[in-house]
Amino acid sequence: MTSPTERDVRTPPDRAAYAVAALLAVLSGVIAWDAAHISSTVASYSRVGAAAFPYAIAGLVMACAIGTALAAWRGDFPDREPMEFGPVAWIMGGLVAQIVLVGFAGFSIATGVLFGLTARGFGGKPLWLTIPIGIVLSFLLYVLFSKGLQLSLPQGPLERLI
């Protein structure tokens, strides 16, 4: 294990910080690649075309990537709290479930599932209790906003009942 300075001898290299720098570099690359594919045949009297800003921003993002890599190398990337994946997974699962369900099960069921899974992520009551509560809550919101105020929200079997 090599360390740039004596001070850092005991700390392992900050892999996550290098990963952030790498992601920024990838972002910069994607923007520049996309800009290179903008082919405008429209008359541009402004001389600053559709690709100019993307190139400039790609350059700035790349500068940040380099800066971040340097910060990682010097070890001044900030310390982080250890992360627990469980609760995050519950919530992300809830969001994904909602996206999948909202298409055919409608707003109330999909959002109810999101509510239940999020509550579970925060250490709430069991799912058999929270999901039905969420569905009832979402259904009431649906009635209020969709029927009362003509907001068009996705419909499913429950929504078609009324």
Partner: peptide
């Protein structure tokens, strides 16, 4: 209580998003 509060926040956040643009893409 925290589980209900955050559950409610996400319900509200997605309700607003869906109300303005009812699409799965916007949720994603």
């Amino acid at each position: 209580p925290r589980p209900w509060l955050y559950g409610g926040i996400l319900v509200f956040a997605t309700l607003g998003t869906l109300g303005a643009n009812p699409s799965q893409f916007e949720l994603a």
